[in-house]
C-alpha cells in the first residue's frame, strides 16, 4: 500500500518536472553560450528508468509532447520526442550498464536520435552543437537521476 502511494507520489513529481521543463525549454532558459538543453528529453528518459508502467509512461510522453509544442499542430520536435522516449522505454531493459552510466548512454543516443528524426541536416552541419547539447543533457540527467534515486531509496526505507 505504501509502495503504491510512493509510486503515485513519484508520478506527480515527474508530471510537475515535465511541466516545469516544458516552460523552461520553451523560453530558452538554462542556455549556456546559446546551447539549450533538451529538458523534456532528460526528464522523460530518466523517468523511464524509474517506472515499468507503460501506460503511465505513455501519458507522461503525451503530456511532454503537448508541452514542447511550438506551433499549432504536431511538429517534428514533438514527433521526435515521442518516438525517442518510447524507444528508450522499449530498450531500457536491454542496456548493458544499468544506472547512471546507462542513463548517460541513453541520453547521448537520445539527443542524436532527436536530431536524426527532427532535422538530419542540422546534425551534419553542426555536429559540435549537438555534441555540446548531448553533454549538457547528460550532466542534467545525472543530477535528476541521483535525485530520483534518493527519493526511491527513501521509499524503500519507509
Amino acid at each position: 500500500m505504501a509502495s503504491s502511494h510512493w509510486r503515485a507520489y513519484l508520478a506527480v513529481i515527474v508530471v510537475a518536472l515535465i511541466l516545469m521543463a516544458g516552460a523552461l525549454q520553451m523560453h530558452g532558459a538554462l542556455a549556456v553560450y546559446g546551447i539549450r538543453p533538451d529538458l523534456m528529453l532528460v526528464v522523460l528518459i530518466v523517468s523511464a528508468l524509474f517506472t515499468d508502467n507503460f501506460l503511465l509512461y505513455l501519458l507522461l510522453t503525451l503530456i511532454a509532447s503537448i508541452g514542447i509544442r511550438f506551433a499549432p499542430g504536431f511538429g517534428p520536435e514533438a514527433f521526435a520526442l515521442v518516438v525517442v522516449s518510447l524507444g528508450v522505454f522499449a530498450v531500457k531493459s536491454k542496456i548493458v550498464w544499468p544506472g547512471l552510466l546507462g542513463s548517460a548512454i541513453l541520453i547521448g543516443a537520445g539527443t542524436i536520435a532527436v536530431y536524426t528524426l527532427g532535422s538530419m541536416q542540422f546534425l551534419f552541419r553542426h555536429p559540435g552543437i549537438v555534441a555540446a547539447e548531448a553533454l549538457y543533457n547528460i550532466v542534467l540527467a545525472a543530477i535528476l537521476y541521483e535525485v530520483l534515486q534518493l527519493i526511491t531509496r527513501y521509499e524503500k526505507k519507509a
Binding site: 523560453h27 539549450r36 523534456m40 536530431y115 527532427g118 542540422f122 547539447e133
Partner: peptide, 13 residues
C-alpha cells in the same frame, strides 16, 4: 510567446 525548443532553429512565436 516562446522560442523553438531545440537548437536546430532560431524560430520564435
Amino acid at each position: 510567446y516562446s522560442s523553438y525548443p531545440l537548437n536546430n532553429s532560431g524560430l520564435i512565436l
